[in-house]
Nucleic acid binder design. Sequence first.
DNA 1: TTGTAAGCGTTATCAT
DNA 2: ATGATAACGCTTACAA
Lengths: 340, 340
Amino acid sequence: VKEASSGQTSRATLSDVCRTARLSSATVSRVLNRKSPVSAATREKVMRVVADLGYVPNHAARTLAGGREQMLGVVFPEIGNGFWAEILKGLDAAAAAKGFHLLTAFSHGEVDEQELVLRLHGAGRIDALIVMNLRLGEVFAREASRFKTPVVLIDRPIPGLAASTITIDNARGAQLAMSHLYEHGYSDIAILGGDLATFDSQQRLKGCEEAAQAAGVKWNPDRVIGGAFTEESGTAAMNALIDGPGPLPRAVFCLNDNLAIGVLSVLRERGLRVPEDVAVVGFDDIEAARHLGLTSVNVPLNDIGRAAAEAAIGSIGPQGAISSVVLPTRLVRRRSCGCA
Amino acid sequence: VKEASSGQTSRATLSDVCRTARLSSATVSRVLNRKSPVSAATREKVMRVVADLGYVPNHAARTLAGGREQMLGVVFPEIGNGFWAEILKGLDAAAAAKGFHLLTAFSHGEVDEQELVLRLHGAGRIDALIVMNLRLGEVFAREASRFKTPVVLIDRPIPGLAASTITIDNARGAQLAMSHLYEHGYSDIAILGGDLATFDSQQRLKGCEEAAQAAGVKWNPDRVIGGAFTEESGTAAMNALIDGPGPLPRAVFCLNDNLAIGVLSVLRERGLRVPEDVAVVGFDDIEAARHLGLTSVNVPLNDIGRAAAEAAIGSIGPQGAISSVVLPTRLVRRRSCGCA
DNA sequence: TTGTAAGCGTTATCAT
DNA sequence: ATGATAACGCTTACAA
C-alpha cells in the first residue's frame, strides 16, 4: 500500500495490480471486465491482488478509453410543486439497480435551462438526459434533436423532439374524479384550473368532458375557470364563486391540489362546510391532501421516476430505442368529496 | 462540422480546434483554462473557432489529465422526512455557482450506506462527499478518515471522523419553543420525543431544560416521553397522556412535527380544542405545519444545503480546510400555541 | 508568447 | 490464454 505524505492512501492503479500480480494490463483488464478467455488461476490471482491493494478502477480513465459514463443527467425545474423529490427517489432506485449514477441539477428559468442541458450534454458527462416539466421550446427541440445523448421527457412530449416520454393518464384521472362526484349526486360542478392551455390542463379537461357525457350531464364550458396553479388562485376563484351572481356550485374539482388548498381555506373562513355545502376534489395527491382530508387524483411519482430511468438506460447506445409510457392515475377518496 | 453516419454531430475535440485555428494544443488549452500568457489575438481566434465548432471539453479527459471532477457526491437516507429535498436545492444552487455538479444517491440501510460511500469514493468520481443523517458508525469512521476525499456531515458530527459538519442550533430552537410556551402562561408542559438517545434529541432536551430554568419552572424529567419520531408514536403518546392517571398537560412540545401531527389528530378526534384545551408546538416546520396551523421551530434547510456545498468545495485540495457551522433555528408562531 | 511531448489510467486490437 | 502497444482527449512541464 502506497502512502502519500499526508498519510492518506493514494489510489492503487491498474499497473500497480499488474506489477504485483506479474501480469499484463490486458489480462487484468480482462478479468476485471469479465471478458473472454482467462484461466481460473489467473482470475483468482488478480482478484486477490485487487482486494489486497483495495484497487478500484478509475472512472475517468475508463470513460476516456471508450466506456460509458454510467451516469444519467437529471434536470428539474427549481420552482414547482416539489414533485421531483419523490420522482428522484424512483429514479435513483431504478438507476442504482442498473449501476447508474444520477447527476442532478435544477434549472432557473428558460435560458438557464437550455444552457444547463447543453452543458451536461457537451461535456460528455452523461449517457442520457432526463428532463422534467421544462419550458424548452421548439427551437431548442430542433437543436436538441441533434444530440447524440438520448433524452427522456417527464410530463409531456415536446413537438419535434424525438425523445422518450413518461406521462400520466391525465384524462383518465380527471374522468375518475368527475365521475365520482356525479356518483355522489352532484350535478353542478365547477372546475378550477390554472393555465388552461397547458398540455396537462387540456388532457384533464378532456377527461372532465368525457365524464360529463358518460353521466348524461350537459357539458358546460362556463363552469371551467382558469387562473394559475397556485393556492392564491384557488382562494380568488372560490371567493369569486361565492360572491358572484351565479349559483354556488355543489362541488368543485380543482385541476391541482394547490388550488384545492386555497379553496378549502376560503370555505372554512367563510363558514361553508366541506363536503356538506361544497364538495372538493383535487389532483396530484400531494402530501397536504392527506392532512386536509382532501380527495384527490393520485400521481404515481415513484413509478414515474422508475420508468424514466428505465427509458433513459434503454435508450443508450446503438441498440437504444425511444419509448414512451403512460402511467395510470387513480382516485384517492377522503372526506372532502363526501365519502366517509 | 463532422457528421456521424447517424446524422448526429460527433463531438469536436481539442485537436479539431487546434487544426482549425492552426495552433498547438498547449496554446488552446491555455486560453480555455485562462492560464498565463496568451496574446489577445490568439485568444480571440481560439474562442471563435471554439464557438464555430461547438467545442466542449471532454470531461473524462480533463479529469484524467489531472483536473478535478468538479463534482460533489451527495448521499441521503432513502427514508426519512423528505428534508433532503429542500436541502438538495440549496446544495445545487451553491454548487452550481462554483461550477460544481451534484452526484446524488440514496442509501437503503447501513450496509448499503457504507458500500455507497466507498464506491463513490473509490471510483474517483467526486471531489468531496456530503452525507446526511446516516447511521455510519465509528468503525466506518476510522476507515473513512483515510479517504483522500473530504467529507461533509449534515446533521451531526461522527466521533473519530475528521469531517466538516453542518448542524443546526437544536438547543436554541427547543429553548425558543419552550420559552414561548411559558410566556403564554402554560407551566405544565409535556415533551414528546422520539429516540431520546439521538444527538438531536439530546440537544433539544438540553434547550428545554434551559428554558425551564430561565422561566423559573422546576425541570421535571418525568414529563419527557420517548418513542419514535413518527405520527403513530405521537398519537400513541397523546392518547396515553389523556387516558393516563396524571393531569392533562396544558401544552405539548413535540420534538418533531411528525409527532405533533399525530398529537393534533388525537386531540381533534377526542374533542379537545387546540390551543384552548391543549397547546401544541412542533419542531422542523415541515410544510404540513403551515397547513395545520402548527407553531413549530423552523430549520433553515436551504441554508443547510448551501453551507454544506460551500464547506465541501472549501475542503477540496491541499488548500482545503475542515470547517463546521451551526445554523440558527427560529420559532414560527401559528395558531396551535395560542397566538392569533 | 507559443510549441513539443510526456503522461493520466483504462480498454481494445493485434500478435504471440 | 496472455502480452505489447496504440488510442482516448486533455493538462502541463519544459523547450524554443
